[in-house]
Amino acid sequence: MITLHVNGQDHAVEGDPATPLLYVLRNDLRLNGAKFGCGLGQCGACTVVVDDEPIFSCQVPISVLAGRRVTTLEGLGTEKEPGPLQKAFIAAQAAQCGYCIPGMIMRAHALLKRNATPSDDDIRRWMQPNLCRCGTHPRILDAIRTAAGRVS
């Protein structure tokens, strides 16, 4: 049994220690934010934040997470009270199908934690691991700029 610390709460998880975090978040903890996109660490749809760092939850077995803080999209806010980054994405209408967006928000969240005033270049470089097929990129950039307090 492994204890996962997710969005401020401890969860005891049974099962294979090799299970990637993504499946435990989605199926055992019923958190929908992290999505399966590739399972290969190529698209970022499954991005969550572990101890302030963005990680691909599809590639990280739960066995390595004991004692570490996991933050998912659900940890940033709710539909009634969205967090600042979620608000900025909503304001920018930064979603088409929206499948990639939770991962985008989580990666951006980690960026703003370490650099409250990223340049455009910083943002692009940081967001590079995450794919969007709908071409929402310009709006995603806008939303992150807005959340960083920069007028877009």
């Binding site: 220690p17 090799a18 299970t19 990637p20 399972g39 290969l40 599809c58 590639q59 990280v60 077995p61 739960i62 066995s63 390595v64």
Partner: peptide, 8 residues
């Protein structure tokens, strides 16, 4: 770790 992170 290998099974969860590498074997996919």
């Amino acid at each position: 770790i290998f099974a969860g992170a590498c074997a996919s």
